[in-house]
Write a protein that binds this DNA or RNA. Structure first.
Lengths: 209, 209
DNA sequence: GTCTATAAGGTGATAGAC
DNA sequence: GTCTATCACCTTATAGAC
């Protein structure tokens, strides 16, 4: 289980995700990736069978990590605490990868949709968002949850023009995301006679960063 | 100024934006567009000089409409009312075009970035978001404003899985967007001693749809 | 305005030497 | 593991007839 490999595979992945995020998947040619690594195109084919396989390999552990969050959330009571923890965990997962990865996911959705691994990703995000609200929650509620996930993972490149550190931007995304899931009503209807309403008043500090 | 043309140009645009949004710009070939219209590739080149020109033409009046909102907002006092009106107007602009257009903008950002018209678009959105907060607003505040614009224009395809009409989804996006710009603090610091604080307590009805 | 025919170029991918 | 050389394919775009 040691690093017995030369690490070329990982270098290919790192360069690829960077170029895919910046210029898009289709416009990034294997020639371009190879040139950046000072190898030839053919060398890439020793490590990956196809161009698409590079993308698939990129998202393998992201998907696994999201699945872990989903599994955890499914076993928890649907409380405010749980929703906040889902946001925090997803924020950690997003932060623990190259920034360009979430950027690729967010800014090349049309491409990823064609790639089948994109469908898998999309399904996970859908399910993850589903853990943040009741199944029959109203549209605005469901939208709020999807946007909370976006906020906690996409802040650094949504605030690209802003002069601040990535840390500050991630913190801002987390702050907003927590606010979004906290103002959410738990059930499908207005939260006025539900027993869950006991959780609805103990928050409102930001816990940013 | 009448419709003296055969309308082929408009048909090309309509088909193109649909395919670009669904499969992405690069993966949509001119052959594919032509086939859908039962013409040949060469016919497209009578109406547009290049493939990129089709995209440019697509966004011409969207950009013009956004500019109008920016111009209007610039002349207004930076009040809550103004911010809400910006959201409403942008929501109208987004609704008044094919749904696939905003989808293309949101889901093919990497591609559009390479297309130069994408840079123009992006600059407009940046400026429009800037009208929703003070120049030195904290990161979370700026993020909230960007996300409000996203919410009001992207709800129908962000809620793709949801079983509801587009009208309901647009309404949900508007509701959330208004909430986001309403909970925003006006200045760069906490709103406690600013004179603008008089506007900060007359809202909190949703005015959805 | 639309067609047929074709040019020019880049792409993903493979074969086989080292 | 990486190379050279090559392939088949598809693309955008153009020329010129009708």
């Amino acid at each position: 289980m040691g690093e017995r490999r030369s690490g070329t595979r990982e270098k290919i992945q790192a360069v690829a995700v960077e170029l895919f995020a910046e210029h898009g998947y289709e416009k990034t040619s294997l020639r371009e990736i190879a040139e950046r690594l000072d190898v030839t195109k053919a060398a890439l084919y020793y490590h990956f069978n196809t161009k698409e396989d590079i993308v698939v390999s990129l998202f393998d552990d992201l998907i696994a990590n999201v699945d872990e969050i989903i599994d955890w959330a499914t076993d928890q009571p649907r409380t405010l605490e749980t929703r906040q923890e889902v946001i925090r965990r997803y924020g950690c997962v997003a932060r623990n990868r190259p920034k360009s990865m979430m950027r690729f996911v967010q800014e090349s959705k049309a491409t990823l949709r064609e790639l089948a691994v994109g469908e898998r990703l999309q399904a996970r995000f859908q399910t993850l968002a589903g853990t943040l609200h009741m199944p029959d929650a109203p549209p605005a509620e469901q939208l709020r949850c999807s946007i909370a996930l976006l906020s906690v993972s996409a802040a650094p490149f949504m605030l690209k023009e802003l002069d601040a550190t990535d840390d500050e931007k991630y913190a801002a995304g987390l702050e907003l995301a927590l606010e979004l899931v906290s103002s959410a009503c738990v059930g499908g209807r207005e939260p006025q006679s539900k027993p869950q309403s006991k959780e609805r008043s103990k928050e409102r500090q930001s816990t940013a960063s």
